[in-house]
């Protein structure tokens, strides 16, 4: 259960996000740039949250999660390239494609655990990265512009900044709600239990593998949706999103926000991207300053920013 404080912060944040476009475009502020920035933050929030779903609750430390972000952008980009711009069709391809690939990769990687799982998810994602680089038809490592954004309804044109923004916000809210429900469902209890003690779960009668695999697929699909939005927002397709560096960034967002606290990574993504934006104003070597901050956070706030708030989250134990 969430404490009242955390619930208020969460709802408050969503309300602020909902009001942001109006404020940013008002005459007083007039910084429409913030809309774009926050849209990006929200997309990475979705991706980080989906990673936390398997990493924090299921102890599946995927070091290749950004792969699904990339796959989502490729789904939009490749279809747009062939002038298949129907949003529903793109969405269907995106969901079934990421689900299929997550299923196959999960089938392989979930046979291992610990450091081997980390390495195998890393290696499999890198394979796709290099595949992306070698696909000259879609720009190779230069990437490819996406000329047309997804078309859903005639009255809901994604070329309108506000429409794009609210589509992302809506996806974020729905994803957060759905994942929260899943974590507390029977299914979620199985995933969390196998994090805590997989042998014990099997002894009381759970064939845990298929539940872990299903969780892995769910996380992949949600991250794929983030990629779908990212492709539309940036109007650009690039293998760079599948690179392990991106997967590492997602992990940092999870850690900064708080592992095993589903909503923490929303703030982790915000903090990370803001910090990047802020520090990059002063120096090209912003990571030099970001490093110590991350170390302090990991040392002194094991459950990240969200964990600093009072009210204990009922997360799976080590």
């Amino acid at each position: 259960m969430l404490s009242k404080l955390k619930l208020s912060i969460l709802i408050g944040s969503f309300l602020i996000l909902a009001a942001l476009p109006m404020v940013a475009e008002s005459e007083m502020i007039d910084e429409p740039f913030y809309i774009d920035l926050m849209a990006r933050v929200m997309i990475f929030s979705i991706a980080a949250m989906s990673l936390d779903f398997i990493l924090g609750y299921g102890a599946m430390i995927s070091f290749g999660h950004a792969l699904y972000l990339g796959l989502g952008t490729y789904a939009v980009g490749i279809m747009a390239h062939y002038e298949l711009t129907n949003g529903w069709m793109q969405l269907l391809v995106c969901i079934s494609g990421t689900a299929f690939i997550a299923f196959i990769l999960g089938l392989i990687s979930l046979r291992t655990s610990g450091i081997y799982f980390i390495m195998i998810t890393f290696a499999l994602a890198q394979m796709f990265y290099f595949l992306g680089i070698s696909l000259e038809a879609f720009g190779g490592d230069d990437g490819l512009p996406i000329d047309t954004r997804s078309e859903f309804f005639s009255f809901f044109d994604l070329n309108e900044t506000w429409n794009m923004y609210y589509l992302i916000l809506g996806t974020l809210v729905v994803a957060a709600l759905v994942l929260w429900k899943i974590i507390n469902s029977r299914f979620g209890m199985v995933v969390r239990g196998s994090h805590s003690n997989d042998a014990r779960m099997q002894a009381i009668g759970f064939p845990t593998f298929k539940y872990r695999l299903a969780a892995f697929v769910i996380a992949g699909v949600v991250c794929g949706l983030a990629g779908f939005l990212l492709g539309n927002l940036t109007e650009f397709l690039t293998p760079e999103y599948m690179h392990w560096f991106r997967s590492g960034e997602l992990m940092i967002m999870v850690m900064v926000g708080g592992m095993g606290t589903l909503f923490g990574p929303l703030f982790g993504a915000f903090a990370y991207l803001m910090m990047e934006d802020f520090l990059a104003n002063f120096t090209e070597y912003w990571q030099f300053y970001f490093g110590p901050i991350l170390i302090l956070l990991v040392l002194f706030a094991k459950q990240g920013l969200w964990g600093m708030l009072p009210g204990k989250e009922d997360i799976s134990d080590e």
Partner: peptide
């Protein structure tokens, strides 16, 4: 399961024998 309550521990055992657990909502 140390971070589950005693009740949740036993409930998990019962759940294991109460059909499949692909129940995502309740």
């Amino acid at each position: 399961f140390k971070n589950f309550t005693a009740l949740e521990n036993v409930a998990l055992s019962i759940q294991a024998h109460a059909g499949h657990s692909f129940k995502f909502w309740k």
